[in-house]
């Protein structure tokens, strides 16, 4: 199975034998990888019926659930997991801020990845074309996009700051999930996908 550099980066942030919840687990690829390489245990949550079937095929414990309406708090008690992971789904939920709270309630740490709306290609399209950006990482029209809460790295970090959430790790990659020197110097301008590991401030 192909494992993206994004998932490899996430794996590096996971302690072996930990308990993991993957929100929007898709076909269960990340969990399968973590089970095989880090002997983790845990569950996936997914809304898409076809992906539920794929996750069951992948031998993953998957719960069909919406990520809205505080569903995860109904299912799990506080500190049930070492990590609550959510890749590329923060921007599609109704209230990312509330979900972030829920994730940090049921997990000790959260790992979140999302597309950076502050990337220069987005800025350039808006500035020069005067139109909503459409890129490889965000290939939708403004009217049919599931991405209803896009943000930039800076926006996300402002939210963390306001909520008393500590950024433990941060990484950026491009659409090919590679990391370059430029991205490290100017992540909000050159990074296309953001990876954050966060926790509540002690």
């Amino acid at each position: 199975m192909h494992i993206s550099p994004e998932f490899k980066l996430i794996s590096d942030w996971i302690t072996p034998n930990s308990r993991v919840l993957d929100l929007g687990c898709g076909d269960g690829r990340l969990l399968t990888h973590l089970i095989n390489t880090h002997q983790i245990s845990g569950y996936g949550m997914e809304l898409d019926p076809d992906k539920i079937i794929q996750a069951i095929d992948a031998n993953i414990n998957v719960i069909q659930s919406n990520l809205n309406n505080h569903d995860i708090c109904h299912y799990f008690d506080e500190d049930s997991f070492d990590y609550v992971i959510m890749t590329q789904a923060l921007q599609v939920v109704k209230r990312p801020d509330e979900l972030l709270d829920d994730m940090l309630a049921i997990g000790k740490q959260s790992i979140i990845t999302f597309p950076n709306f502050g990337h220069w290609k987005m800025r350039a399209q808006l500035l020069f074309k005067g139109r909503m950006p459409e890129t490889k990482t965000l290939p939708y029209h403004w009217y049919d996009t599931p991405n209803i809460h896009l943000c930039t790295f800076n926006d996300f970090e402002d939210l963390c700051e306001a909520k008393g959430i500590e950024v433990v790790e941060r990484a950026v990659v491009n659409a090919e999930h590679r990391s370059t020197l430029g991205m490290k110097i100017a992540p909000n301008l050159l990074g296309e996908i953001a990876l954050y590991k966060v926790q509540k401030k002690a």
Binding site: S41, I52, N61, V62, Q64, Y75
Partner: peptide, 11 residues
Amino acid sequence: LDNDADVSYAE
């Protein structure tokens, strides 16, 4: 889930 059982759920 409270019992950490192996469970999958489809709606």
